[in-house]
Amino acid sequence: MTTPAILSAWAQTPERSNMLMLRAMTWISLHLGRRAARVVLHLIAGYFLLFAPASRRASGSYLKRALDRPVRWRDLYQHFFTFAATIHDRVYLVNHRFDLFDFEVHGEDTLQRLLAEGNGLFLMGAHLGSFEVIRAMGRMDKDLRVAMLMHEDNAQKINTMLAAINPEAVQDIIGLGHIDSMLRVRERLDDGCVVGMLVDRTPADDTLYPVQILGSHANLPTGPFRMVALLRRPVVFMTGLYLGGNRYSIHFDLLADFSAVERGERDAAIQAAITRYAVLLDKYCRKAPYNWFNFFDFWRATPPKSS
């Protein structure tokens, strides 16, 4: 999720003042409206542009690949603004203000068809656009239940943040790193739930698989794909791309269906799924370049610890 990024990067101040800022932003957002609150977002984007050189370098290095042309200052600004805007919109999504937005949904039939089978499914996203827009899907399908799988320390940050935005908002989170984390995942799936996760950042201890993203070599973690294969479920790629104004386009693309993949075919199927994930990530980065929210050098040899 993007939360750790908010807490650590937004204004780059200690966590307590971040929470204060988040509460203040929430208040402004809900009481003064989205338009007034967005003035503040321009200040945040400007702040990043001027005072966060490491983020600016990472942004430039990514945009050069995604745009395939020289990067201008306004591109960097647009990138930071898109980041701030999607984080800000979470305030409304968490408070169920779906009426404020214009969502176009692609591939919903794929999602519905797989959900109708009743065995649950995995949604794999990236730090690309907003995963939170999945909440908007709940408006159309009341039975849609989503549990997010993530590292335990991030789970705690998310809960603190949600409590600040809307004390009644609940997020079903399965923390990684417990001996029975995977048994929990299996039980949610057996109940017909969707289990979501962001898999573009690689934990230090995971096995890596080399892929090409935006014309350069990158590594993706194999662990999440192994889990999906073992639990023999379909896995769908999801991203909610911010298109400016109040518009988002939500995309669901079938990545792989491991329901009938036997043991002997597993490794090949996992590799095919990771490769397809990279292809989709590449495609959506080019489609909506400013939605990439990995503000570190993604293409370097040793990735940072995942969030």
């Binding site: 029975d180 995977m182 048994l183 995942v185 662990g223 192994r226 073992l230």
Partner: peptide
């Protein structure tokens, strides 16, 4: 934990066990 899952799946099948996450004994 993914290895543990894999082991749990194999053992459940071989010995007819029900390993559940709500067991405090895991």
């Amino acid at each position: 934990s993914i290895d543990v899952l894999e082991v749990a799946l194999v053992l459940s099948k071989r010995y007819g066990l029900q390993l559940r996450s709500d067991s405090a004994d895991n």
